[in-house]
């Protein structure tokens, strides 16, 4: 079936304009929140934690914070947009149009990548400006940023489709997304953890996204960057398949 690229683009642009129209809430607030983490954790833990050789703690956590904001905001973009559209009823406009499930998925996830990157870039710019951050491999940075945002955009879509009310979404975010991002090595190297928690971290897919992303800055990581890439791609494929099944079946959208 021929793709309706104009329709897909229209939906993508709508989603981008949607979050841009409330940029204070969707872009600037997350940037400020991440910088507060940097300020507080950086100051308090700077002298108490060893990370990679030759790096200060503040330098170490900046890529992690950038990735954390990317993950959380990519998730928020699709999930909140979908639940709002369901609540206001305007998802019907998309459902009545000739946009296919694949086009809908691509448009929503692409917009979430844009938001994730926009917020991540905000944190990064301030981080570079305040701390001596260099990037060794920009391609790895960009690759992990885009793939991870896509994964979380997809996870947000699944949550948005399945949630019947804002409360469901808040539970998903507070009990799954935030704990997994906080336990993904944003604030520490997993080598600093007891063995049990090191093993546990390897079952957290967000850990590989943070670790691979950090590799792009320091050429150092807790696990092989190629392994992190493989896990991230695998996760993206799984999330994509789940969403396409949900959309083609019309779960909670077409009754």
């Amino acid at each position: 079936m021929q793709m309706n690229w104009v329709g897909c683009w229209a939906l993508f642009m709508k989603e981008v304009r949607r979050f841009y129209s409330v940029a204070v809430q969707t872009i600037f607030a997350p940037v400020v929140a991440s910088l507060l983490y940097l300020l507080i954790f950086g100051q308090v833990i700077e002298a108490r934690m060893d990370v990679y050789t030759g790096l200060s703690y503040s330098q170490f956590i900046i890529p992690g914070l950038v990735m954390m904001t990317i993950l959380q905001n990519a998730f928020s973009n699709t999930s909140s947009s979908l639940i709002q559209s369901k609540m206001h009823g305007n998802l019907t406009f998309v459902m009545l149009s000739p946009i296919s499930p694949l086009e809908l998925y691509l448009a929503f996830v692409s917009a979430s990548i844009v938001r994730g990157l926009a917020v991540g870039l905000g944190v990064l710019v301030v981080g570079i400006w305040g701390f001596d951050i260099v990037w060794q491999s920009p391609m790895w940075i960009l690759l992990f940023a885009v793939l991870s945002a896509a994964v979380m955009g997809g996870v947000g879509m699944t949550a948005g489709i399945l949630a019947d009310k804002y409360d469901h979404l808040a539970a998903f975010q507070n009990f799954i997304i935030i704990p997994l991002t906080f336990l993904s090595g944003v604030f520490y190297s997993i080598h600093a953890l007891p063995e049990f928690w090191q093993v546990f971290s390897h079952f957290n897919p967000f850990f590989y996204m943070v670790d691979g992303f950090r590799f792009g800055f320091f050429n150092q990581s807790d696990v092989s960057v190629l392994f992190s890439l493989a896990i991230t791609v695998l996760f993206l494929v799984a999330v994509t398949v789940i969403n396409l099944i949900l959309l083609y079946k019309g779960v909670k959208i077409r009754h």
Binding site: N4, G7, A10, L11, P98
Partner: peptide
């Protein structure tokens, strides 16, 4: 936007 969904 709605017209865009229809490729218009």
């Amino acid at each position: 936007i709605q017209g865009g969904y229809f490729g218009l």
